[in-house]
Structures are given as C-alpha cells and as structure tokens.
Amino acid sequence: MKGSTWHGVAVVGSLLTAVLFGILLGDLVWQGLPQMSLGFLWRTPSELTSFGGIGPELLNTLVMVGAASAITIPLGLAAAILRVEYGARPGFLLVFDRMRYTLLSLPTIVVGLMVYEWFIVGLRWPLSVGAGVIALAVVNWPFVVDVSVAALKGVPDSFREASLALGGTKYLTLLRVVLPSALSALVSGLGMAIARLMGESAVLIFTAGINVSRHWGWSAPGETLAVHLWYLRTESVAPHADAQAAATGVVLLLLVGLVLYLTQKLAHWLKPMDA
C-alpha cells in the first residue's frame, strides 16, 4: 500500500477513536448530570440517600497514587540507571530484564493477592490506605523501571562518548548530559504511569478495601475513585447509584486527563534543545 493510503487509514482510525471516546464521555456526563454538583466532590458517600459524594475517595486516590509514586519513582529510576548506565555484566542484564518483563505482565489482581497474603494475613494489617499504597507501589514499580529504561536508552550514546572524551566521569556524565537529555521522555512516561495507577482497581479491592472512614489515616480503609466506581455499579443499593457511578467516572477521567495534560506540557517544556 502507498504511504497516502496508510495515512488515510490512520486518520480514519483516529477519528473513530475520538468519536467513540466522545460518545462514551457524553454518555457518562448525561447519566451523571443529575448527581453532579460541587458538593459531590467533597461529601462522604451515602448508602441511604442520593446525596452521597466522593470526597474521601478523591482524597484517597490522590494520597495513595501520590505516595506510591513517591516510593516507586526514585527507586525505579535508580534501578533503570543501574541497568542502562552501569549494568555492564551480561548475566545481570539478563536476570534484570527477565524479572522486569515478568513483573510487567503480572495481572494486577495477582499482585493484590500477594500483598493481601503478606500484609493483611501475615502482618495482620487492616485493609487500609497503607496496604493500598504498598500494593499500588508493587504494581507501579515495573512500569516506572520500564519508562525510565526507555528514556535513558533514548539518549544517543554519542552524548556519553563526547562527555567521557572531555574528561567527564561516569557519574558527571549521567548527571550533566544523560539525565537532562532524558528528562522530557521521563516526565512524559511517568505521567502515563501515574495516570494508569489512578484507574487501578483490582489490586486495591483486597488491600485498601471498599470503605472509607470519616477520619482519614494510613490505617483507615482506603477506597479510591476507581474502586468506588466498581462498587457503585455492582454492590451499592443507594438510590441513583448508577448516576453516581457515572459522575464518579467523569471525575476520574478528568483527573487522569489533567495528569496527562500537565505532564505532557511539562515534558514539552523540558525538551532538550535539539528537538
């Protein structure tokens, strides 16, 4: 096929995706409209009335995703640096990459079971924000490593050679050339990892629970927006639960969209001077 034909296929595909997304979003907004108000964003959920909100879920989502990212991003980046910049021994690389791929393809619900076994059953933690953070961190870890490895590998080796040839140590080369050149790709990739984490539900059902407490704490139950959405559509007997689920979905989508938009903007701003 000619290039123009492929171009046409790509345009039709993108339009189709955009239209489908538009329909989905429109439907959600239409369904959720009766429930949408500013108060919905901070009220506590209610099983008995249709005046429930998603305040605690919103807070839990932000705190748990934030904490899990704060744990995994530095560690994942460090692992990727070890892999790309310092991992000269082939045996190490092989083991590292195999573990990375295995973790990447692990279903998150299995991660949830693991964390449940170790922390809830083994260490007798409650279903809580804290356990949820651990579970999210385990899920996020291989993605952070993957994104960081890709960003570091995207830095042309000729930059490293030039820096070393000028008398740069490995460490200074990393600090002054490699990381600045990789930063844009890193931010954009990490944005996607964070956005993905916000929609994570399977791993949290066993670990953070499907409840919230009036008093926030690390050991209090930590239902997030995504889990709440699932709960509303399956278990809840509250009046207008479906409309609330739609409204929750809209909020979650907006949140994800905001994260993606901001990180892409930041990535664009951080782009090295050659692009």
Binding site: P156, E161, A162, A165, V177, S181
Partner: peptide
C-alpha cells in the same frame, strides 16, 4: 582525557 581530546565522525554536540 583532559590531555587527549577527541573529535568524532559525526558531529555530536550536546542538546544544549
């Protein structure tokens, strides 16, 4: 490497 400088086959300026 401070004594012995090098210029490469393809121009490789940093993205600065």
């Amino acid at each position: 490497r401070q004594k012995v400088g090098m210029v490469f086959q393809h121009p490789n300026p940093f993205p600065f």
